[in-house]
Design a protein around this nucleic acid. Structure first.
Lengths: 160, 160
DNA sequence: ATATTCTATACTCAAATGATAGAGTTTATG
DNA sequence: CATAAACTCTATCATTTGAGTATAGAATAT
């Protein structure tokens, strides 16, 4: 039931772009460094996001990428729908012909509703909402011993 | 974001067992035939479901499997939690140490809430609820042409 | 000119998934 | 008690998917 790293990294990247909305293009290298993700991998995620018109880019020196809409107008569902190759809890959600049982399978409706529940949730949260949030405390009910030294985010330095 | 076939097949199998609750053990071969899933694969799914005490089995001729609790007391979440190897939309949900960024990652809370939304949904639906349902109509908004000849479920014949 | 940055496609590698195989155990029944 | 019908357990395998790397090319500010 895991989301791919594409969706998760992509969301983080979009969040970085949202932080710098209206500050000019952000080069991919900066995002890669801050997030600890390879430039090459992020480049692949940008392509579909550009096609979907959530990102616009500027080439050449001082170039980079930026949101093409304000952060309030981009939801997490928008991002995940673009990056996650085939969401839907079961293949038959997107393609009913994927299974011969489709027409009388009781569980198909179940997985469809569950998929809907996720989409509704993610649709209700915009990039702008995300920026208001605080990280959740790291007190896992699983492992509470052996905490590492606190790790802090390397601040993203904007040019100029 | 897809669920594994383990969860999906397992749910269908549990639904078959629910249909025959209090009718004695159902052999795995019958379920395999009705659902079109190999006996060998279903056998693997039964093991964890037995460990979790949702299924009890009887060996030997006339043996088989049956629910160890009434269908009202087993939710879809119960089944998925047992069969899906690591649910949680991100690895950091189950294991915060999976990522160094854990302590100050804005998206971790997001994925946690989303996972919660799914679990809540599946928790609210029992096997008994499922049996009340009707299959959803097969009018996909994607492909509406070229419908195959209707396929009907082969009825499961109980012994005696 | 040239260094910087994005664009596009192809390729590799490992892990997970989905499924099968076979040997062994229990037990109802004739 | 022999046998066949079932479950149990472990191993194996093939395919797909996911994650990431590599390479070549195009645009543009300075």
């Amino acid at each position: 039931m895991k989301l791919s790293t594409r969706s998760r990294y992509g969301t983080r990247m979009m969040l970085d772009l949202a932080r710098h909305y209206n500050e000019g293009p952000v080069p991919i290298g900066e995002i890669a460094e801050v997030e600890g993700i390879s430039v090459k991998y992020l480049e692949q995620l940008i392509i579909p996001l550009k096609k979907a018109k959530y990102i616009k880019s500027v080439r050449g020196p001082k170039g980079g990428h930026m949101l093409s809409k304000p952060p309030e107008e981009i939801s997490i569902a928008d991002i995940v729908k673009v990056l996650e190759g085939g969401f839907g809890f079961s293949p038959c959600i997107e393609d009913p012909a994927a299974c011969k049982r489709t027409s009388d399978c009781l569980t198909r409706g179940l997985w469809e509703e569950t998929t809907r529940a996720v989409l509704d949730k993610l649709d209700s949260i915009t990039l702008s909402d995300m920026l208001q949030r605080r990280p959740i405390p790291d007190q896992s009910p699983w492992k509470s011993e052996g905490r590492e030294t606190p790790w802090t985010v390397k601040p993203m330095i904007r040019r100029q």
